[in-house]
Amino acid sequence: MQEASQYQAGQLLNVLWDLQYERISGGIYIKTTVNPEQRPKSYVLVLENGQLIYGGSRIPETNEEFARMIGSKCNRRMTDIAIKYATQKLKNPSSFRELLERIVQIRVFNWEEIESTVHNQVVQVLEQSLPYPGQLQVDSTVQFDLSHGKDGYALDWSRVMRDVTKRQMEWTVLAPIVPSMEAIPQLPRRGLQVVTDIKAQQHLHQWVNGVRSLTDIAEQLNQDPLELARSYRAWAVSGWVTFGGDVPATQVPSTTEQQLPIVLSVDDSVIVQTTIKRALADRYEVLLASNAVDALKVINTTPIALLLLDVTMPDVDGLEFCRTVRSIPKFKNMPIIMLTARDKFSDKLRGQIAGATHYLIKPVESNQLLEVVNKCIEKTILVPSFSPTLLNS
């Protein structure tokens, strides 16, 4: 096993990409430090020749344990019987892949369910570890012959990262009430007597002790932390649980630590800028500039994820400004959405030639604007372009 290496907050993804580029095989053990006063949280990913095949809180010790986990997630009552039957026919008694093939053949669960279960686990591992500092250790001796689908392929890394991003956006929406996935719920001063739902009362009595975070509770219950947070949001709105002042400052990421994508809107209309900020503020940090000069200062000093640009501006034409931005190498791939009242095909063509990613006609509906911004930012997530390489070939 290699010596553990330290990484800072926000650096884990780059470390993982390096391991994939180097075509590493083995277990990738991750310990994240959410709060220095608490024990690190442990996760593991498994790579095969640089391809991602598994992730979770730990690697199952046996193929039977893994098959039971899949059966439990899929609510299959016949899993134990299927395992007993399948293990009698295995050529390699320790093979994960062979046992799964046997169980799929008798239709207790299918490859899509296996892949979906592992995919969701990997998404949650990355969601809970990427924002924080920690340490990583590679164990190349780990043998885990798992692959997915009938033809035996790895997980789709691009799809994994898209789902991580979508979930981060959902956490942002919950943030005004549920500060973060590491938030610590507490009972109100009046206690459980205010809770009118029996199941909620039983849950809160058992799990809310002022110490456990949402991820701690979700792990104990084997639940998705985001789904659990949705329930807690409803309970908080009802006054059954609180989050105020219960999370140490080191646990509640600031806007910067949450890494909200930053959108810069360049428009000299106060009305337009107000509309844009209202449409996007729940999911993005929105910066405003009224002219090209101020905008250029911002994008040179701030990590802008997307630029909203009015075509008609008082100093520099929006098309000219777009060309200027595109001429700077580090902004070559930054999404630029042009907002304008000009709706002719020739206008759209000029915007495309200047380097615009998308072209929206004013006035634009808030929902439409948010949808386009979401899609543009999702496409800019820098993920390795992995094809579904066959692991069994």
Rank of each mutant, 00 (worst) to 15 (best):
Glu219Gly: 14
Leu187Tyr: 07
Tyr54Phe: 11
Val34Met: 00
Ile59Arg: 03
Pro93Asp: 04
Asn300Glu: 09
Phe243Thr: 05
Val138Phe: 06
Thr196Met: 15
Leu100His: 06
Asp145Ile: 06
Gln206Trp: 05
Arg159Asp: 14
Leu369Asn: 05
Met78Gln: 13
Ser158Lys: 11
Gly149Thr: 01
Thr87Asp: 02
Met69Ser: 12
Val252Lys: 06
Glu65Arg: 09
Ile106Val: 08
Gln121Thr: 05
Asn63Met: 05
Ile103Thr: 02
Thr302Val: 12
Leu391Cys: 03
Pro388Cys: 00
Leu130Met: 09
Ile28Thr: 02
Asn14Met: 03
Lys330Arg: 15
Arg159Pro: 07
Glu112Met: 05
Lys84Gln: 06
Leu13His: 11
Asn35Arg: 05
Asp267Tyr: 00
Glu170His: 03
Leu319Cys: 15
Trp111Leu: 02
Leu391Met: 07
Asp145Tyr: 03
Thr274Lys: 11
Lys89Tyr: 10
Ile353Gln: 15
Gln8Leu: 15
Leu339Cys: 10
Thr165Cys: 12
Thr172Val: 07
Ser25Gly: 11
Asn110Lys: 06
Ile106Leu: 08
Pro36Met: 03
Gln88Ser: 10
Lys348His: 13
Ala4Tyr: 10
Thr302Glu: 06
Glu65Ser: 09
Gln273Asp: 04
Ile336Met: 14
Thr256Tyr: 09
Thr302Asn: 07
